[in-house]
């Protein structure tokens, strides 16, 4: 079980690196928000494998649910494309 679990954690960490890069480089801020949510999902999987269920329970609603909602609200009230 240990090798499979750590392999999954590594895959999640590498996915988060790709998502972070795409989020920082995207010109469309909505796309950046979605990639930031992908990065949060990868982190949530990583926390689960690192045996932190409390953090998963607080991190999923906050960083996958509320934070993208707030960011999309911000984009709607300001501007969508980075200039």
């Amino acid at each position: 079980m240990e090798p499979v679990a750590i392999l999954l954690a590594t895959a999640a960490a590498l996915l988060s690196v790709i998502a972070t890069y795409l989020a920082i480089e995207a010109k469309d801020l909505l796309v950046a928000t979605v990639f930031s949510a992908v990065q949060s999902t990868a982190y949530a999987l990583m926390y689960y494998i690192l045996m932190a269920p409390d953090i998963v329970l607080v991190y999923v609603p906050v960083s996958v649910g509320l934070l993208p909602a707030v960011t999309i609200l911000l984009i709607k009230k300001t501007e969508r494309y980075e200039r």
């Binding site: 269920p53 409390d54 998963v56 329970l57 607080v58 609603p61 649910g65 509320l66």
Partner: peptide, 24 residues
């Protein structure tokens, strides 16, 4: 999650954020 915080993983912060998602 909030009420069983002392027995299972969870607690006030987790349950509160869950319900905040509902309100949003």
């Amino acid at each position: 999650i909030a009420i069983h915080g002392h027995l299972t993983p969870g607690g006030g912060f987790q349950g509160g954020s869950f319900m905040a998602v509902l309100m949003v």
